[in-house]
């Protein structure tokens, strides 16, 4: 990475982010998914389709397909590795924490529960790219809401899956 001239730039394009962009995890179609969410960023055209297999309160599996910039696609990829196999509540907690970090909250940026996702901290210095980084967790939160809606746990009256 020594060839990158601007320190700012290297804080944006962290090795870990580029690595997830070039070799995305959990990419492809999910067999037996229970929830599916499409999410796009109308101004940029970043787009993903996220599928989850939720059993009880656990995300048993999830996969995505999509296209867009390195930040958006890497953030979705990394999000899937962090929430896979975990509980819905924990996933929602991570989504909240990640969003806080992206909005510039320094305490959230030190939260170890975010694990590798802390690599995205540098993106918060590039305001126009923040929404790219949030694409994955925005989709996840929508998916979790739908999963809960269909399973009737804290059901939202009138909510449609």
């Amino acid at each position: 990475m020594s060839s990158i001239p601007e320190p700012q730039l290297s804080s944006l394009y962290q090795e870990l982010i580029l690595e997830h962009y070039k070799r995305p995890r959990n990419r492809g179609e999910l067999e037996g998914g229970t929830v599916e969410v499409h999410m796009r960023n109308p101004s940029c055209g970043d787009e993903i389709r996220l599928q989850l297999r939720v059993e009880g309160d656990a995300i048993m599996d999830l996969r995505f397909v999509g296209e867009g910039c390195a930040i958006s696609q890497a953030s979705v990829s990394m999000m899937t590795t962090v929430v896979k196999g975990g509980r819905l509540d924990d996933a929602m907690g991570l989504a909240k924490r990640f969003t806080e970090m992206m909005r510039g909250d320094p305490e959230a940026a030190r939260d170890r529960s975010l694990k590798d996702l802390r690599a995205f901290q540098g993106v918060s210095k590039f305001p126009v790219r923040v929404k790219c980084a949030l694409l994955g967790f925005d989709a996840l939160q929508e998916a979790v809401k739908r999963a809960r809606g269909t399973e009737g746990s804290p059901a939202v009256p009138g909510a449609t899956p």
Partner: peptide
């Protein structure tokens, strides 16, 4: 992606 190209050129 073009957005990444644009960010790098902007730098």
């Amino acid at each position: 992606h073009p957005h990444d190209v644009s960010t790098i050129l902007d730098s």
